[in-house]
């Protein structure tokens, strides 16, 4: 049942994305190379979504649906989507249409790995990764031995309050490996975006926009997954911390034990983490629905066969 909200989010995003793509579409280009590149980009993007969703569905079906497995399956579903989506985009960049014709042109400009990447998306991805690393590390350090819950002790061990699920190592380890694989895949895809052939067009803005759009697609899918996973882990941890701290305070009050205000603060901290988790997940949604830059429309005279390339 935990996967149901995820499915709703995916459907919502798909609808919003399709709507945005339909309203922002630029008329087809008269330049053959540009038309071929845009066709390839569209095909790659669609294939990435399709393969990503298939892999996510397969992971969801293969994963256990028991209460204990459901949390890990939810994380793995997201990561499977992200890795598969990025892998297809990587393949698309590696198979980008090559220049044809006898006369070829190239600009003597070095393209760096991050030159085409939108800065705000880079920041979103980086912040998501740092938050994920912090959440996983903190969860592993403070969680129970089984890595699934958290237990707070108060009044010299007279009170023990536990809560689960909590993002300890049990949930954190697969998430960490998956995020690492996703990050490596993103670097490979960005490298392919920087190294792939330029689109043979007289309008540099078209070539720039196509490359920016490629980088945007890569960072968008991966960034959304990172933010969703991070948001999920933070939500689980924050909720568990809040519950455990609240239980401790309640138990102490019921037994007339003095435990100080630290646990009340912990309860607020747990709520704050939960709130931050919602913001992070919302940021993931924003990242996912913001469409890539559109390719500029043909300039007057474009497509006239004056140049074969």
């Amino acid at each position: 049942m935990a996967l149901l909200p995820l499915l709703c989010v995916v459907l919502l995003v798909a609808a919003v994305g399709a709507g945005a793509a339909a309203t922002r579409a630029t008329p087809p280009s008269r330049e053959d190379a540009v038309a071929a590149a845009r066709r390839h980009a569209r095909l790659t993007a669609a294939a990435a979504w399709a393969v990503g969703l298939l892999c996510a569905a397969a992971t969801g079906l293969a994963g256990g649906l028991s209460d204990q497995q459901e949390g890990i399956t939810a994380v793995l579903v997201l990561l499977a989507f992200g890795i598969a989506h990025t892998a297809v985009l990587l393949a698309g960049e590696l198979t980008w249409p090559r220049p044809d014709g006898a006369l070829r042109r190239a600009r003597l400009h070095r393209r760096g790995l991050l030159d085409s990447a939108p800065r705000w998306l880079l920041w979103a991805d980086a912040v998501g990764l740092v938050l994920a690393a912090g959440t996983i590390a903190a969860g592993a350090a403070t969680g129970d031995d089984d890595g699934r819950g958290i237990t707070l002790s108060a009044a010299d061990g007279l009170i023990h309050s536990g809560a689960s699920p909590f993002a300890g190592w049990y949930y954190g380890r697969p998430a960490a490996w998956g995020l690492l694989a996703l990050a490596l895949m993103v670097v490979a895809a960005l490298w392919a975006v920087a190294e792939r052939s330029a689109v043979a067009t007289d309008d540099d803005a078209v070539e720039t926009a196509l490359r920016h759009a490629s980088a945007h697609r890569v960072l968008k899918g991966a960034g959304a997954v990172v933010l969703f996973v991070t948001g999920g882990l933070m939500a689980v941890s924050g909720n568990a911390l809040h519950s455990a701290a609240d239980s401790t305070v309640t138990s102490a009050a019921a037994n007339d034990l003095v435990i100080g205000g630290a646990f009340s603060v912990l309860s607020v901290v747990g709520s704050g983490i939960g709130l931050l988790a919602a913001v992070v997940a919302l940021a993931g949604l924003v990242v996912l629905v913001v469409p890539p830059p559109t390719v500029p429309a043909d300039r007057p005279g474009a497509g006239v066969p004056a140049r074969s390339w």
Partner: peptide
């Protein structure tokens, strides 16, 4: 191309020129 200009990587230039 003044001194210090960075040329494209071999792979990128080869891709651009086919």
């Amino acid at each position: 191309l003044p001194a210090g200009s960075r040329l494209p990587t071999m792979r990128a230039l080869a891709a651009d020129l086919g």
